[in-house]
Design a protein around this nucleic acid. Sequence first.
DNA 1: CATCGAACCAACC
DNA 2: GGTTGGTTCGATG
Length: 121
Amino acid sequence: MVLYVLELEENKVRKARLEDYMEVIYALISLVEPGKVTTYGSIAKLLGISPRLVGKIMAANKSPIVIPCHRVVKSNGDLGGYSRGGVKIKKRLLELEGVVFSRGEVVDKKCIIDLKELLDP
DNA sequence: CATCGAACCAACC
DNA sequence: GGTTGGTTCGATG
């Protein structure tokens, strides 16, 4: 998808910066309905970047309320991280939205949806 | 299931 | 050039 950005004025191609990904990622996340979550890897594969970068971009999120960055977890169900107040808050938000947790800190797989499957249909 | 290690990619030093 | 993240995936016990 957005691997490279065309710099028309200088007539050359440069690598995308994290900044370039932010809008796309935030748009994608907002597609995830409350009660469900998606994974860093799911987003990463869609954009052709590493899951870690996705995490970094979430951490750079300026508007935690309008951007539901808490709806992104690790692919194994672990919460991952949350820069705004810690994973404790993250879990609380998710529970509030109806996400089911199994054995403590792990999100039930039934609540994890892959972004790809959200786009195709 | 739990742990381990290697790969991941832009940023920062 | 090396390290560092809100990770992942396969291999191994």
